[in-house]
């Protein structure tokens, strides 16, 4: 198969970028999209042109590293698929394919197709955990968890943190990402003590990072390679509302100062 690629090239965060056109020939349909990019890069290197920088690691749809907007769609045309799980058989011979980085104010371009997603990590650091030290813990079967609850928690917890939801959202919102973690922990008994504090901290951090607000476009759900449901956004909004009503100003009371 042969393709014409239009690829975003940008040297670093401080310079402007542009789309460049490259042709790749003799690509097998069983070749993955990233392998096609590898082939392009090897051929560019042979011609002494700097290869296209792009992120990838696991190449099996779980690390969340790969991040390309392909023909206007984050992770390309297939539903429930990351860029690294796309195969050239999903395209037509002779196709022109446009490849760009995630576009969002909160994800500045680092180089070519690579963006800086550290804002996501900071949202997690603000509260995406159960505070628990390492050491002896109670017997886990002492707290039974209905399998349907564990399953629903996992439906949210399976987020790979790739950022496609943000890239797809016309407002650049990070609601799906944030709500997935809020819901995962909020559904489980272990997450209850910090449930309302957590949602507040994470939502505030999300806003501080400059992500847009949610206007219910649901583009995030459509782009999510793990098909995480926007029902979790509703759940987060409810928890957030509740938290503003019930949360004491300092949940640890006087304990910190003693």
């Amino acid at each position: 198969m042969n393709f014409t690629l239009r690829i975003w090239r940008q040297t670093d965060a401080n310079t402007d970028g542009d789309l460049e056109t490259y042709k790749v020939q003799d690509i097998e349909p069983t070749c993955s999209f990233l392998e096609m990019m590898d082939i392009l890069n090897e051929r560019l290197t042979e011609r002494n042109v700097e290869p296209v920088a792009f992120d990838s690691d696991c190449r099996e749809g779980i690390c969340g590293m790969c991040s390309m907007v392909i023909n206007g769609k984050p992770h390309g045309p297939k539903d429930g698929t990351t860029t690294c799980q796309l195969y050239m058989r999903h395209f037509e011979d002779g196709d022109e394919i446009t490849i760009e980085p995630w576009r969002s104010a909160a994800f500045p371009v680092t180089r070519d197709l690579i963006v800086d997603r550290s804002a996501f990590d900071r949202i997690m650091q603000a509260g995406g955990y159960v505070t628990v030290h390492s050491g002896p813990k109670p017997e886990p079967n002492a707290i039974p968890i209905e399998p349907s609850i564990a399953e629903e928690a996992l439906d949210a917890a399976c987020c790979i943190g790739c950022g496609a939801c943000v890239a797809a959202c016309p407002n650049g919102a990070a609601m799906l990402y944030t709500s997935a973690k809020v819901s995962h922990l909020g559904l489980l008994p272990q997450g209850q003590p910090e449930r309302f504090e957590r949602v507040q901290k994470m939502v505030h951090q999300m806003e501080a990072e400059g992500f847009g607000s949610c206007r219910n476009y649901a583009e995030c759900e459509a782009a999510c390679p793990k098909e995480i449901s926007i029902k979790f956004i509703g759940r987060m909004n409810r928890d957030f509302l509740k938290s503003t009503l019930i949360l004491p100003n300092n949940p640890r009371g006087k304990m910190d100062s003693q």
């Binding site: 159960v130 628990v132 813990k137 968890i145 399998p147 928690a153 917890a157 272990q190």
Partner: peptide, 23 residues
């Protein structure tokens, strides 16, 4: 065995049986 206890306490959603016990 301590690892499982630790992970559950962190909120790792391990598979459960119908009665809510770890599978």
């Amino acid at each position: 065995t301590d690892i499982i206890d630790q992970a559950v306490a962190q909120g790792v959603p391990f598979a459960r049986e119908y009665g809510g016990m770890l599978a």
